[in-house]
């Protein structure tokens, strides 16, 4: 074979230049999936404070909820979870071979629906819990 040129980084990035629904759906799905796994650990950590008694648990929750950043992160968590679920359902249909010709539309629909649900949830989350 003759010499050939490896286009290196340009090569790796060029494939992301053109927006393609299925590609982004894949990236978002992987990303949200791993964020959920990460959250699972914090979730378990917070819940385990209940092992040291009811008051311990309540103060932990109250402490966390009093922080604005935590409430904002919760909105983010909801966004991630809702997108993962909706796109997950889309992927199940794709696996069944149902509605493949609308795969891009169903991805946009997941995005929009996620957006709507998240926006609707903002007041509830930012108000925080009052225990």
């Amino acid at each position: 074979m003759s010499q050939s040129y490896n286009r290196g980084l340009i090569e790796d990035f060029s494939r992301w230049r053109e927006f393609s629904a299925g590609m982004w759906a894949w990236i978002f799905h992987k990303f949200t999936g791993w964020v959920l796994v990460g959250y699972l650990f914090t979730h378990i950590a917070v819940l385990s404070t209940a092992l040291s008694g009811a008051t311990e648990y309540t103060t932990t929750i109250q402490g966390l909820e009093s922080l604005l950043i935590v409430r904002i992160l919760e909105v983010g968590l909801l966004a991630v979870a809702v997108f993962h679920i909706l796109n997950g359902l889309r992927l199940l249909f794709v696996d069944l071979g149902v509605g493949l010709e609308a795969q891009d539309k169903s991805f946009y629909a997941s995005l929009i629906l996620t957006g709507v649900i998240v926006v609707a949830s903002v007041p509830t989350f930012l108000a925080g819990v009052t225990i």
Binding site: S20, A25, D104
Partner: peptide
Amino acid sequence: CQTQFSCTE
């Protein structure tokens, strides 16, 4: 295959 549909497109 991760069903990204880029080939189909």
